[in-house]
Amino acid sequence: MTGGGHAADLALAGIVLLGSCVQWLTGMGFALVAVPALILLLGPSEGVVLANCAAGAISVVGLAGGWRRVRPAAMVPLCAAAACTVPAGAWLTHRLPAPALLLVMGGLVTVAVLLIMRGARVPALRGTRGAVVAGAAGGFMNTAAGVGGPPISLYAVNAGWTIREFVPNAQFYGVVVNAFSVTANGLPDLSAPRWASVTAAMTVGALIGRGLAGRLPEPRARLLVLGLALAGGVTAVGKGLWGL
């Protein structure tokens, strides 16, 4: 393997490790942090499907200890709406050229992060109607851009959920919507050694994230995740514009 190949493998493992770490810290940080970097490293299509696989796997493990706090009344409309828009996201991913996809993905991440930073209050994101709107947006964004969490975060803000309420429900949604997305987009085309390094990075990231969860104040962790996500989104937009 060439030096460039080794560097790419190390970069991939580092991205996944960081994403896994912040996912365990905040409940939904993997895609925001990792997707912009993954699409720059692997290309839009492969980056998205790898993010879907990794985020889904992390959500499954995280949900094991908190499934009793899942709210079915909110999750049913959220997940049902996501199932309806996943095909549209998959269609977009396979039709747009790479620079346009980078632009779309980076733009979605950037706008979503700015809205979350503002704590946007949106009347349309309240109640059952809000769950349908957020779920539909999340399903489309997750399959098209690998980032389905921001609409759910905004829904939770408008529903007044605490972080304790948000995390297990976000993980449940992550399991379901990423399963939909992987079914629609397929699995990433990675070699066995790369799969092994990705799995190891996810495990190490989870251990670090769980270790930091009790030590890093929630506002600081949240600001770190959003700052990294915003930087990645802006970078993806810039590369997309350059490619066009």
Rank of each mutant, 00 (worst) to 15 (best):
A74R: 08
R215L: 10
R220Y: 12
L226Y: 05
G160S: 03
G27Q: 05
A184C: 09
V167W: 03
A57G: 14
G243A: 15
G5T: 13
V60G: 06
V113D: 06
M117N: 07
G3A: 15
I15V: 15
S45P: 13
P123M: 05
L101C: 12
L101E: 07
V35S: 04
A200E: 11
A144R: 06
G205N: 04
T199G: 08
P150V: 00
P217K: 07
G240C: 06
R215N: 11
P150L: 01
A64M: 14
V104G: 06
G238H: 10
E46M: 14
V70Q: 10
L154M: 12
L40D: 14
T110H: 00
F166T: 00
G106P: 04
A200P: 06
R210S: 04
R126F: 04
S191N: 10
L40T: 11
H94N: 13
G66H: 09
P36I: 14
R68D: 10
T93Q: 09
A54M: 14
S191D: 13
V234T: 09
V182E: 11
V175W: 04
C79G: 01
L207H: 04
G238S: 07
V109P: 00
P150Q: 06
A196Q: 03
L187V: 07
A81Q: 03
P193V: 14
L25G: 08
R129I: 06
S181M: 02
A64E: 08
A136V: 06
V175F: 01
V122F: 05
